[in-house]
Design a binder for these strands. Structure first.
Lengths: 235, 235
DNA sequence: TCAAAAGTGTTCGGACTACACCCATGA
DNA sequence: TCATGGGTGTAGTCCGAACACTTTTGA
C-alpha cells in the first residue's frame, strides 16, 4: 500500500459549510460535535475521508449524512492545513460549501447530530478554525454571487422577487433598491414569470418566478454583476 | 500520535503551478520528474507535506527548492482528491499557484530538476492530473486578473505599458486595444510614471512605470475590471 | 527618409444610480 | 378605509467600446 517510502501520512477531514435560505433569511447549519475534544460545542459538519473515496464524494456523503440530500450544489472552498488546527492530532481539512433550500428539505434533517440553523449574525463560537472557514466561505459566496447566479441554488422551485431580494440582502447584509434589483435580475432573462402569486407574505401577493434552466446553465459563468458596487460589500 | 482511531491516513502532496513573465510572454515552469513512475516526464514541481509543516509552508518550501525564491505571491488553488490520480498510491494534492518575474530570478533556478519555461500553448503532456491543474489555475488567474491587479506581481520593478499589455495578452490569449488599455490601467492610479524610458524594445522608447505600493495594497481587492467583456475570455 | 513601436482623444451607446408614486388586497 | 407590501418608470451620469492619426528615433 505504502509505495512512497519514508513519508508521513495524515488524516484528511472534510468540513461542510451549509448555507440555507428559508424564504426570509440566509442561515448556516451547525451541529453539536459528537467527538471529544470540544464535545457538544458547535461545529461544522465534518468527517474523515475514507480509502478509495474521492474528496468530492466524501463531501457528498457527509452532507447526505446530515441532511439526507443528494445532488446539492456544492463547491470546494480550499484546504486548511495549519498543523495545529486540530489540537488532538494533525488533520488537514478540505472545506466544501453547499447551498440548500431549507424549506424543501428540513424534514430530512437527521437529528443524530442535533443540527440547528443559525443566522450568520447569531453564529455561536465554533471549534478549531471553523469560524475562519465560515468567514472564508461567506466571502467566497459573496464574491461568486456578485457575478454569477449561484444564489438561485438556494431557492425553491417557485419563488418571488421579494424573496430573491431578501436572499441577496442576507448574503451581503445590505439593502438593495428594489426597482434596480428587479430590473437587473429580470434583464438576465433567467427568470420566467408565473401566473400565480404567493399570497402568504402580503395581501397583494407577489408573482412567482421559476428559473429558465437552459439559460441558467448557459449563463452561469457569465459576468452578470448582480451587486452594485461590490467593493463595498466584499471586504 | 494517532489519536483518532480507525481512520486511514493519506499522503498529502503539494503541486506548484509557477507562472512567469519575461517581459514578452507568459510562461509556465515545469520540471523533469525525478521519481518513478513517469520518471523524466514533464510535471509540475511538487513534494510531500512534512509533519508539523503547514500546507502553505510546504508550498513555500517547494517553490524555494526549485527557484530559490521566497516571499513570492502564492495562493492555494484547491485540493485534488481523486483516489486514482496518482497510480502508485493514493495521494491528495493541494495545488498552489505562484507568479514570478522570470528575468529577475532566472539565475537562481536550481537545475537539479531540469526546470524549463514553456509557453502555455507549447505545454507538453504532463503526468497524472497535472494538466487539469494547470487549466484550473489558468482559469483562476484569468478570473482574478480580470478584477484585481494580480498580474502586477509578475512584473519587474520598472516596466512599460506595452509590457503590461503583453502580459494581459498572454494571460487571456487575446489582443486588447492599447488606447483603452492604457486609459484603464492608468485610471486605477496604481502606476507612477518614471522619467526614463525603456529603449530596448523600440526606437522611440516606452516610459517606465512603477507600482504605487500603498495604493496597490489598498485597492488590491477592489473590482477594477481590467478586462473588457471578460465573458469572452474566461470560459 | 522610412519603418516600427509609442502615445494620445473623441464619439456613441448602454448600463448604473437615484429617486417616488400607484396598485391590490385583507383586515 | 387604511395599512401593508408589490410593482413599475425616468432622467442624468458615467463607463466601456470602437476607432486613426501623430510622434519619436534608430537604422
Amino acid at each position: 500500500m505504502n509505495k512512497y517510502p519514508n513519508q508521513t501520512r495524515f488524516l484528511i477531514a472534510i468540513d461542510c459549510i451549509i448555507f440555507g435560505f428559508d424564504g426570509e433569511n440566509l442561515k448556516l447549519l451547525l451541529i453539536h460535535r459528537a467527538l471529544v475534544p470540544e464535545k457538544n460545542k458547535w461545529s461544522l459538519m465534518g468527517g474523515f475521508v475514507q480509502p478509495d473515496e474521492s474528496t468530492d464524494a466524501a463531501a457528498g456523503r457527509i452532507l447526505k449524512q446530515l441532511t439526507g440530500l443528494e445532488g446539492v450544489y456544492m463547491d470546494q472552498l480550499r484546504a486548511f492545513g495549519n498543523p495545529s488546527r486540530d489540537p488532538i492530532e494533525r488533520v488537514v481539512s478540505i472545506v466544501y460549501s453547499a447551498l440548500i433550500d431549507i424549506r424543501k428539505y428540513k424534514e430530512q434533517l437527521s437529528d443524530e447530530y442535533q443540527p440547528e440553523w443559525f443566522l450568520l449574525k447569531d453564529m455561536p463560537q465554533l471549534i478549531f478554525d471553523h469560524e475562519e472557514m465560515v468567514r472564508a466561505a461567506l466571502k467566497d459566496l459573496r464574491y461568486k454571487a456578485a457575478l454569477h447566479p449561484v444564489l438561485f441554488e438556494l431557492l425553491p422551485e417557485k419563488f418571488t422577487l421579494p424573496q430573491l431580494q431578501a436572499l441577496y440582502t442576507g448574503v451581503y447584509d445590505a439593502e438593495f433598491d428594489k426597482r434596480n434589483f428587479s430590473r437587473k435580475v429580470l434583464s438576465t432573462g433567467l427568470l420566467i414569470k408565473q401566473k400565480e402569486k404567493d399570497k402568504e407574505n402580503s395581501k397583494k401577493g407577489a408573482f412567482y418566478y421559476v428559473i429558465d434552466k437552459s439559460k441558467y446553465k448557459d449563463k452561469f459563468h457569465s459576468f452578470l454583476n448582480f451587486v452594485p458596487n461590490p467593493d463595498n460589500f466584499l471586504f
